[in-house]
Amino acid sequence: MRPLRMALTKGRLEKDTVALLEKAGIDCTQVHEKGRRLILPVGDGSMEVVLSKAADVITYVENGVCDLGVVGKDTIMEHGTRFFEVMDLGFGRCRFALAGPKGVDFYAGYREKVVASKYPNVTRAFFENKQMDVRVIRIEGSVELAPLLGLADGIVDIVETGTTLKENGLEVKETVADLSARLIVNTASMKLRKKQIEELVARLEGAKKTC
């Protein structure tokens, strides 16, 4: 049987995950010395780590080429659901928030509101739950620009400290969802390799508690 394969979101989540794996007693030397390699053995060889972009972690796990993945709740909300979400890893905490120009009531008036976001699915779902019609515009870069330029009444984006918002005359109007890194598992892997996966989850739970 091939090693248990875990996809990690490159960047900060990768570092936090590696720290957690090491705390759980899984050797990650190869990840530290990865060079340009993208598939890296960890621990005693019964597991390997794959590095990829956040949305791809979901794709690899959904299609079963990776058994597990570590990805932000933001990406899960935007991109997919056909896998098991088994653990809140506790790091990468931030939130999705609706923000708009300071001192302006976003909900005032009957005119249709325009909302810019890098996360159109999350935005649409949020307003659909409110039974509210809005026009969603997808923006790829700095979303804060859209209300400043007059394209949008508000934005839905990830907020950590709120500094960028403040410096651009924007403020949080409402929290859409609290976010953190999650451990996800492919549906079939969960059934066919249950023991191995549960052991790993238990070790990670243990390591998380000692954080």
Binding site: F83, F84, E85, V86, R182
Partner: peptide
């Protein structure tokens, strides 16, 4: 609706939700 939301969380093994 609440029941359906709970069912979805169980189906997805989404312990946190």
């Amino acid at each position: 609706e609440g029941r359906e939301a709970i069912r979805r969380a169980i189906e997805a093994k989404n312990y946190a939700a």
